[in-house]
Design a protein around this nucleic acid. Structure first.
Lengths: 116, 116
DNA sequence: AATTGTAGTTACCTGTTAGTAACCAGAATA
DNA sequence: TATTCTGGTTACTAACAGGTAACTACAATT
């Protein structure tokens, strides 16, 4: 998922896009937010994601230092995921994207309004 | 490039990621910035992009209303691209990503410093 | 002895994205 | 007459992403 050519650029912006410039990582970061979540929860909540892709993305997020993984030595296994400081610092950006979209998105359906 | 499942979500954030959640569109938007640019310039400046991908992405950006395309009826052809209001409003987000990355990116090379 | 629960992993197969190189129009220039 | 210039398009191919379903470990429960 990560683009190595981008990540090896000498431009920090290009490198940033090389790591978070895809759909899954922002989605996962946004879903976790300030919470601590387990694998099964993420699998259930992140829209449209499959187990396989989820594990891969979680690994990448951990490698890049956005995510902390805490595995308890229990059976059945239990693993907690939470954002690192870097990951938390990314949340306001995702919130800005959300607001930007709400403000500028062209209406897909010309919604009828009951509200006058 | 756009993810239709995401774009049909009833969550605005998910829809936003469905359109700009990829590497090419942020890169192109960032390169254009507040300037007006021609196809050939973009082809030369956007890192690693091929003509084919560039045309495709420019079309998508136009469809989503981030980009304005102005084709002059000349030969040889001349086409200007510039960001729409929506596109311009996205620039601060890209700048925030840049700053976030500069602040939190783990050094790839353990840089020696001459600066004490 | 069989089932449940969790967090993955694996194999197999399909679909999408990307790269490359050749090609186009049609006026202006050499 | 051949070449140049620009903004694409097209065909072919390689690489990658993603979906599905089956499988693992091992303790606790039924």
């Amino acid at each position: 998922m990560r683009d190595d050519r981008f990540c090896q650029s000498n431009c920090p912006f290009t490198r940033a896009i090389g790591t978070i410039g895809n759909k899954w990582e922002p989605m996962i970061i946004n879903v976790i937010g300030t919470r601590t979540m387990r694998f099964g929860q993420l699998d259930a909540i992140v829209p449209h994601i499959s187990r396989k892709v989820l594990t891969g993305q979680l690994k990448e997020l951990e490698e890049v230092g956005l995510l902390e993984r805490l595995a308890y030595k229990e059976i059945p296994p239990k693993v907690d995921y939470k954002l690192s400081e870097k990951g938390l610092a990314f949340l306001p950006i995702l919130e800005a994207i959300n607001e930007w979209n709400i403000k500028y998105e062209v209406a897909v359906m010309p919604e009828e309004t009951d509200l006058g």
